[in-house]
Every structure is written in C-alpha cells, then in structure tokens.
C-alpha cells in the first residue's frame, strides 16, 4: 500500500497515433456517450506542400487540470476535483448552466441536450476506482497513451516524463493541465 497521495495523469505520445479512433469508440462504449457527442477526439494537422506533405494526429480530451477553471466557475459544486486529481462531474448536482463549457480552455466539455447536464472525460473514474485503467488507454492499439500516478517515483508515468521531453497544452491558460504530450 502506497503511502503517498495519488495524482492520476496521462502521457500521450502523439507520434505513435495512427488516427484509428479506437479510443473515441472505446470511450463512447464505456461511458455511453451518444453519437453526436464525444469526450475525446483526434485532431488532424496537415502541413507542407505537395510532394512534401506531413499529416500529424494528436489525441485530445479533458486535460484534468491541477487548478481547473471549470470547477472554479461551477455555481453548485457539481464539477469537482477528487483528492487524486481527477476532475469529475456529479450529474445530480449539475443544473445545466453551461458556464463550465465557456470556462474550459480546451473545449473538453459538452452539453447533453437529452440529459440536461454537462459531460466530459473523467479518466473513467468507475474503472480507475476498481483498479483498472481508462478505456481509451486500454484499447489503444499503438500504445499512444500511458495512464498512471504522477507521484509514484517508479511508475511508468514518472519514468517516461523523466526520460522524454514533453509539453502541456495551453499552459498560458494557468490551469496547470495534467495531460503530458511527449515531443
């Protein structure tokens, strides 16, 4: 039993991404997200001019910020941060004011018209609490995603981050995002 506080983060190696979108499908299935919404996505970037072309794929989702803007602006406390760092939504507390959607610098949230509440990636808390890993991590065929505890010095996340150069998205937003993208 570890004595330190857990801090769950994800490391994404975008270069390995082959744009198969298995993570999007797995997330949809695990979290029962209807077709017109998505908790995660793969951004495509095309650079250069023919014949020197480059296509780059980059998986995106909620960045599980250390100081999340969405939690700050939530009037009811429906959006909250767990002690292990995961930012989640308590659906029964959500009044559907959608302020958090505007506050999020990463556009990670969406409003579910059918349920009248806001939804986003929560690292599959239902799986993490059972000791499993999020559905997108489990399913990724090219092993783009690594999920783990940032505070575990021997964990895979720390090993990767110590060895590889990495960055976070929009650090200037000041929310201290916890999805690390390897360079």
């Amino acid at each position: 039993m570890a004595t330190h506080n857990k801090r769950y983060v994800m490391v994404i190696d975008s270069k390995k991404c082959i744009d198969c979108k298995a993570c999007v499908v797995a997330c949809r299935a695990e979290n029962r997200v209807p077709l017109r919404y998505s908790r995660n996505w793969i951004a495509e970037e095309h650079r250069g001019e023919w014949p020197k072309l480059l296509a780059a794929f980059e998986p995106g989702q909620c960045q599980q910020c250390e100081s999340p803007a969405c939690v700050r602006v939530c009037p009811t406390g429906a959006s909250y941060q767990r002690p292990d760092g995961i930012v989640a939504i308590n659906e029964s507390e959500c009044v559907g004011c959608r302020y958090c959607i505007i506050a999020c610098p990463y556009d990670a949230r969406f409003f579910r018209e059918d349920k009248g509440v806001v939804e986003k990636c929560d690292f599959c808390v239902q799986l993490v609490d059972r000791g499993e890993i999020p559905a997108c991590v489990k399913t990724c065929p090219s092993k783009v995603r690594v999920f783990g505890d940032l505070n575990d010095p021997d964990g895979p996340v720390r090993q990767l981050l110590e060895r590889r150069r990495h960055l976070t998205k929009k650090p200037e937003a000041g929310t201290s995002p916890q999805i690390y993208y390897l360079l």
Binding site: R72, V73, C74, P75, T76, G77, E93, C94, V95, G96, C97, R98, Y99, F111, R112, K115, G116, V117, V118
Partner: peptide, 23 residues
C-alpha cells in the same frame, strides 16, 4: 428556464461559491 434542469435551480442558492460568476 435556460438551465438544463430548471427544477434544480434551487441548488444555486444552497451555497455561495464566490469564485463562480454564476453563483
């Protein structure tokens, strides 16, 4: 009535979260 759940509006007045402009 603009809220996703208009009948939950009372939850806005259970507490004052003063970092939240909506609250």
């Amino acid at each position: 009535f603009d809220l996703g759940h208009w009948y939950r509006f009372w939850k806005l007045f259970v507490r004052l979260r003063w970092t939240s402009p909506m609250s």
